[in-house]
Write a protein that binds this DNA or RNA. Structure first.
Length: 280
DNA sequence: ACTCGTGTTAGCTG
DNA sequence: TCAGCTAACACGAG
């Protein structure tokens, strides 16, 4: 599933291959993925336009579109969210090999397998040159919509400053992991990245945010930066050091103590019984 | 066979 | 207001 690093990879694929090509056809008939639009809404809004940029905040992608003709006004932004299992495929010409952007499990074989299952195609732009942009998603958790509400998202997790991160962690009694996962607080952190970040910072996931002192919040912010950088360098959040230990009988990669497991913030959570014993 | 899950969000409940 | 829970999606992995 895509978290910030995987979505950034997808953004680059879009930027490199999908811009400045006239949109000749749109398949927006999947009413779950394209909700709340009705079939044909997205198609009518995009026909004849070109995607002009590929932007990202957190896990959300959006692509501004051009005017249909030089005297016209620009079109709407095309919003894409990959959910947990979405894959973007951009082809350069009919019959060309697919250039798959991102995710699923993480290895190339899985990506390509997913990308070739046309039965899982949930949305498609066909360009005038014959190439296409397709969204493949077995579980239909992806979202495609016009003019998505990016303003509702918190600051992007990548490159967040210590002061902004402290502000994002905010106040209240939520478990710190729930706050990390709150896209309105910080945008881009998913379940695996949250576990990795908390493990790097040696903070118990259930600790209430109002029980963290400034030193701990700053440590968490540095851990987030490290986790993001590592995931980006190694090719995805699934490469995190503690991720392999998220299973029954798992042991902490640093101290070899048993890993604990529970639901925190509504999500499956694993932490080191010794180093993250903390105060729950 | 059966359970769980890299995400989001509307609708409830406390 | 805040926080937590559930359902919906539909498949692969263990």
């Amino acid at each position: 599933m895509p978290e910030l690093p995987e979505v950034e990879t997808a953004r680059r694929v879009l930027e490199d291959g999908a811009l400045h090509r006239r949109i000749a056809d749109v398949d927006d008939t999947d009413t779950f993925v394209c909700r709340p639009h009705r079939p044909g809404d997205i198609r009518r809004a995009l026909l004849g336009r070109e995607l002009t940029a590929a932007r990202r905040r957190g896990k959300s992608l959006w692509l501004p579109t051009s005017a249909v003709d030089p005297s016209g006004t620009p079109g709407p932004d095309l919003g894409l969210h990959l959910g947990m299992s979405g894959v973007i495929v951009v082809t350069t010409a009919p019959g060309d090999g697919a250039d798959a952007a991102n995710l699923v499990g993480g290895d190339t074989k899985n990506r390509q397998a997913a990308a070739t299952r046309t039965g899982w195609q949930r949305f498609r732009l066909t360009f005038q040159d014959g190439g296409r942009l397709a969204l493949i998603d077995a579980r239909r958790l992806s979202r495609v919509r016009l003019d998505p509400e990016i303003a509702a998202l918190g600051p992007d997790a990548l490159g967040i400053t210590p002061a902004v991160f402290r502000s994002a962690m905010g106040h209240g009694s939520s478990p710190v992991k729930a706050r990390l996962l709150d896209q309105a607080a910080v945008a881009g952190i998913g379940n695996l990245l949250a576990d990795e970040t908390l493990w790097l910072a040696k903070i118990n996931p259930a600790t209430r945010v109002n029980a963290l002192d400034r030193t701990e919040v700053d440590r968490l912010g540095r851990a987030l930066r490290r986790a993001l950088r590592s995931a980006t360098d190694k090719g995805g959040v699934h490469t995190g050091a503690v991720i392999a230990a998220r299973l029954p009988g798992g042991r902490c990669p640093r101290c070899h103590a048993e890993m604990r497991h529970a639901t925190v913030g509504g999500r499956s959570t694993w932490w080191c019984s010794r180093e993250q014993a903390g105060r729950p």
